[in-house]
């Protein structure tokens, strides 16, 4: 069943500080801007290493990929930074694989490994 988009933020310290956005619910043509805005907010506050935890995403359409693209662009325009993905759910994998986006993202299955990869 459809579920409201929620984004929680946490921090981890690996080789560098990593900001994790835990995304749950539906990322569709209506809500994708909320994801982009939240990422923009943490980037403006100084975050440059963003890990998107997508394990709790119930639905993602192509608009969700537009949000990921927007976050990468925001990092670039803010002086550089990295975005990695953690545990994409089946719904995220479906749209990413169908469109071939999986090749262009650094995707991890384990939190510690993902944090250390920055």
């Amino acid at each position: 069943m459809s579920a409201a988009l929620r984004i929680a933020v946490s921090e981890e310290k690996g080789n560098v500080p990593v900001t994790i956005l835990h995304v749950t619910g539906d990322v569709d043509s209506k809500t994708y801007m909320d994801l982009e805005s939240k990422a923009s907010e943490v980037i403006s506050a100084g975050a440059s290493n963003i890990l998107l935890d997508l394990s709790g995403v119930n639905y993602m359409g192509s608009a969700g990929l537009r949000a990921l693209h927007g976050i990468v662009n925001k990092l670039k325009s803010s002086g550089g930074g990295k975005m990695k993905l953690l545990n994409p759910s089946d719904a995220v994998s479906r749209v990413m694989f169908t469109l071939g986006f999986d090749k262009f993202f650094d995707i991890h299955k384990n939190l510690d490994e993902a944090v250390k990869a920055f």
Binding site: S62, L65, R66, H69, F104
Partner: peptide, 10 residues
């Protein structure tokens, strides 16, 4: 997609 200005048509 990371090199495009705005992805669309998907």
């Amino acid at each position: 997609p990371l090199e495009r200005n705005a992805p669309g048509g998907f």
